[in-house]
Amino acid sequence: MLAIDGWFLIEDGLTYLLGSRCGDCGTIAFPPRPSCGHPRCAGTIPAPVRLSRTGTLWSYTNACYPPPPPFAAAEPYRPVTLAAVELDGLVVLGQVRDLTVADLRVGMTLELTSGPLADGPLIWMWGAPR
């Protein structure tokens, strides 16, 4: 089960973020938008688009204390690592899988993967390139 519908998909073991691309002006957005975000664009219905599966680490941090609900914190709690990754002209946040802040540096390449939230559903995650 995916933690949210329409924002990402997993196909043949590969995870893809799903953005939207405006048919009129080409603006790419994540998460997908129901209409174009460009203020001068009347925006036909933007089409879904798969975003790049790798990107450059823009910034990163971790959550040393359990975030409050609706986040489902694992017990015992292990700090969640967060990455902001630049791809396709955007920066997209995500949890980081199997890496801590000590393993990360701004400018490195990360690849999209997925993993479970503590209560089960799958979410996209950033990980080391395979």
């Binding site: 975030p67 914190a73 967060l82 946040l93």
Partner: peptide, 15 residues
């Protein structure tokens, strides 16, 4: 942002 990422306000400040 809380549900999917656990991204609190301090997480953004830290980024």
């Amino acid at each position: 942002r809380f549900r999917l990422l656990g991204a609190t306000n301090p997480a953004y400040f830290a980024l």
